[in-house]
Design a binder for these strands. Structure first.
Length: 808
DNA sequence: CCGGAATGATTTTTT
DNA sequence: ATCATTCCGG
């Protein structure tokens, strides 16, 4: 999109303009892009490198298909992963053609599943107004199940169990499908089953369930399946490398191999960075094979970055095996070298990048064109405080999303209870918030009563007698009164009413630091207002299934028997079949909303490398290129993990248009402890000729930070990874927490010198190479040293055996 | 029931 | 260091 900055090959491509297409649509596409856009109704795999105009190809293809009369909006399904990507597509598409985006199935996997299930709730075995649990809701629902089953929460950690359940669902497995290989699994499956029953009772579905339910309905109902397969002539999938097993299976239900539909999968195996949550890069090669893709189109022309940046990226990624093979090229010339900076500490790193960023800004670069990337969120703090103290505006991505804030979730819980009083998750969230004298004991009694009768908490308040019962009656009475009082009101009025009568407003007004929370509640009202009036997505969600039974669609062959289930009385004028409130609640679960309010300001952008995917900036700082951090130590043990880390670095590098900085430091505060690091192996994988060192190259290990050595006894994370890899026995003291009082003496002890070795200094080992000495302890034949050897890990060595020589 | 103190866990993240 | 959760005494 900023190709003009780099002299994109626009002029040379006028000859590609086809007189049959609307003027401009195919202008300035390069030959590969053109080939992809104008493919016929056949399966296609597009390998779209970073900055190769992927979104443009996707949207242009949709526009082209319609302009050629090859299909209509109803015949197209376009799937993305994020709401942001979906919105981007809508925006660009409507700029190209006056497309009826509403009639098109364009959205996220989960958004489309929601749409599908809203239309076919009956066939899918769901209640009409089913609500969607977000990640947090899911964990607390699982937690309740574990409690109810009286299982040990230490052995069955709710978060991990919910991860297990989601993982099973994403493999298409119901409880009965899982192999009960051991006792633990047997119990987990029991929890899974109980969780499913609970969701069923409460009329809620989690994210994975949206996908699995849709998949199963398509699989098991031939009429539905045939209808949708006939309807969608063209199916486009973005970020295909990020699809998991279930998503691919889902896709195959809508457009199976050999069915003649135009399935257009776009992806980049080098940018697959979500294997850790179930993404299968292998889906790309599976797709190529199963769909018998005749020609894979590679988009390798990069319109984003200068040559040195791309050379660095290409060289780095070439260290990965199992690639589909692709090399980015640019016509923009080499540009500036990649600048490399080594700092003594994370603090110094932050200070340096701040000054550098300020200099760029003074040279006329907008702050919003400067991005600071890091591997893990914890790294943002020191950078933030440096920027904050210097008074430089910045924006941090990630963190709490709007709809995930506690006060917002509380308000939503009341709203959900109005919509569905049997939603136990919401019931429990607010039954005693604000506090109204309903304690843990009372809630426990209520839960027992509910369990015995198999009813919801709301239905079971009669089972608790005495004072607790009376308070519960009061709560339920209040919710019922809210429901009554808000019928017929607008969404905005409903929410305002709930915030006031629930006592939430008063609670936060009374609280010392409730100001911001009150503002967020006000913001919730605004969000609702915007949702109702907004064209496009919001309205789309409300009026959703209307297009499903527009005359054309039914005539299209959906048998009456399986026609979308209608509510008794859809609104005659708008066709609304969901109440605005229900639709808004769905919207809140499906789209967590942006997190930072200061989005409009010109500010330096701070984010993890993961969240930078898909974005681009004129100047990019990649920080913390240190072994154990990037690559992260938890990913270093196996080659798959390491390759994913490398792809992550590849993604980071390719975010930069003009100027790229890479930095690392010798010491870093982590979890309140200073740790000594050596530079990342990825640094060695960057071609020297693309780099420009801002600090002296090949500085000896440990130079300049020996004065900090007294803290070097640290073991913590390094040890953990060691134990995890099963390589070394940890020293006995380290596995037990060390009392604060002992830390000083232990630290001082490590200050000792041993045969010229000093903590914090570099050492050389004949087998493991260079490392940093972290700890020295014991004496004589028992003397041991802990050394960080970077790629060889952190090791404990007996000095009587190991040959360690000091360097520097 | 509430609030302070102890305890524990901190890769990456969308929906 | 920091944040969230849990525990325990008033």
């Amino acid at each position: 999109m900023n190709s003009q900055d780099f002299g994109a090959p626009g002029a040379s491509q006028d000859d590609l303009f086809s007189p049959r297409s609307p003027r401009g649509l195919l202008d300035n596409l390069n030959p590969e892009q053109y080939a992809a856009v104008t493919l016929g109704q056949e399966p296609a795999l597009i390998l779209a490198g970073a900055g190769s105009g992927k979104t443009r190809v996707l949207t242009t293809r949709i526009a082209w298909l319609m302009s050629q009369g090859l299909t209509t909006p109803a015949g197209v399904m376009a799937v993305t992963f994020t709401n942001k990507a979906a919105k981007e597509m809508v925006t660009r598409l409507s700029a190209m053609l006056p497309v009826n985006v509403r009639g098109m199935w364009l959205g996220t996997f989960h958004g489309l599943c929601n749409r599908f299930l809203r239309a076919h709730w009956k066939l899918a075995g769901l209640p009409q107004g089913f609500q969607i649990l977000d990640a947090g809701d899911t964990v607390s629902a699982v937690k309740r199940v574990i409690k109810a089953m009286k299982l040990d929460e230490e052995r069955f950690v709710p978060k991990q169990v919910s991860w297990f359940i989601a993982g099973a669902k994403e493999d298409g497995m119901r409880p009965r499908d899982i192999d009960l290989r051991d006792e633990q699994t047997r119990k987990l499956v029991e929890i899974y089953q109980a969780y499913e029953d609970q969701c069923e009772r409460e009329g809620v579905v989690d994210f994975a369930e949206l996908m699995l339910r849709s998949y199963e309905l398509m699989r098991d109902n031939a009429a539905v399946r045939e209808h949708y397969q006939r309807r969608f002539q063209y199916v486009l999938v973005d970020e295909f490398q990020d699809t998991n097993k279930l998503q691919y299976a889902w896709l195959k239900m809508f457009a199976p191999p050999g069915n003649g539909q135009g399935v257009f999968a776009v992806g980049d195996d080098d940018q697959s960075i979500y294997a850790f949550r179930g993404a299968r890069v292998g889906n790309m090669s599976d797709f190529e094979r199963e769909y018998r893709v005749r020609k894979v189109v590679k988009l390798e022309q990069n319109y984003r970055s200068f040559g040195n940046i791309l050379d660095a990226a290409n060289a780095l990624i070439s260290n990965n095996s199992h690639r589909l093979g692709k090399n980015l090229r640019t016509e923009a010339g080499p540009g500036e070298p990649v600048r490399v900076h080594e700092a003594n500490s994370d603090f110094a790193e932050a200070q340096w990048l701040l000054e550098e960023a300020q200099a760029l800004h003074r040279q006329g670069l907008a702050r919003s064109e400067i991005a600071v990337l890091y591997r893990s969120n914890a790294q943002s703090r020191v950078i933030e405080s440096a920027l904050f103290n210097a008074g430089i505006p910045y924006r941090v991505y990630g963190g709490l999303r709007f709809f995930e804030r506690a006060e917002v979730k509380h308000a939503l819980a009341y709203l959900r209870l109005i919509e569905n009083p049997n939603d136990d998750t919401s019931f429990l969230r607010v039954v005693n918030f604000p506090a109204r004298g309903i304690g843990a004991r009372t809630v426990e009694l209520l839960q027992d009563g509910a369990r015995q009768s198999g009813r919801s908490l709301y239905q079971s308040i009669g089972s608790v007698s005495g004072r607790g019962g009376a308070s519960l009656g009061g709560f339920v009475g209040m919710v019922d009164a809210m429901r009554e009082a808000t019928t017929g009101l607008t969404l905005r009025e409903i929410i305002e009413h709930v915030i006031e009568t629930s006592g939430l407003a008063d609670f936060y007004r009374a609280e010392k630091e409730g100001e911001e929370r009150l503002e967020n509640l006000g913001e919730l009202v605004n969000a609702a207002e915007a949702f109702v009036t907004q064209e496009g997505f919001g309205k789309d969600a409300i009026a959703l299934p209307v297009d499903e039974h527009s005359p054309g669609q039914i005539a299209d062959g959906l048998p009456a028997a399986i026609a979308p289930a209608n509510p008794a009385t859809p609104d005659a004028e708008t066709g609304e079949i969901m109440s605005p409130l229900a639709a808004f609640l769905t919207h809140a679960s499906l789209e967590a909303g942006d997190n930072q309010a200061q989005a409009g300001q010109d500010a330096v952008q701070l984010m993890t490398v993961h969240s930078a995917k898909g974005l681009e900036f004129d100047a990019v700082f990649i920080t913390g290129l240190e072994e154990g951090l990037f690559p992260h130590e938890n990913s270093m043990s196996d080659s798959d993990g390491l390759e994913e880390e490398r792809r992550l670095m590849y993604v980071a590098i390719t975010r930069a248009r003009q100027r790229l900085y890479i930095s690392f430091c010798q010491t870093r505060m982590l979890h309140g402890q200073t740790r000594y690091n050596i530079k990342s192996r990825f640094m060695e994988e960057l071609p020297e000729e693309t780099l420009k060192w801002l600090t002296p190259r090949n500085q000896g290990f440990g130079s300049g930070f020996a004065r900090d050595y007294q803290q070097a006894w640290q073991r913590g994370s390094g040890l953990k990874s060691m134990v995890g890899a099963g390589r070394v026995e940890p020293p006995s003291f380290a596995s037990a927490p060390v009392p604060q009082s002992m830390k000083q003496s232990a630290a001082q002890k490590t200050g000792d010198e041993h045969g010229g070795l000093r903590v914090g200094k570099g050492v050389f080992h004949t087998k493991f190479g260079e490392g940093v000495l972290l700890t020295l302890e014991g004496s004589g034949p028992d003397a041991r040293a802990q050394v960080n050897f970077g790629r060889h890990g952190v090791k404990w060595l007996a000095l009587s055996v190991a040959k360690l020589t000091p360097i520097d």
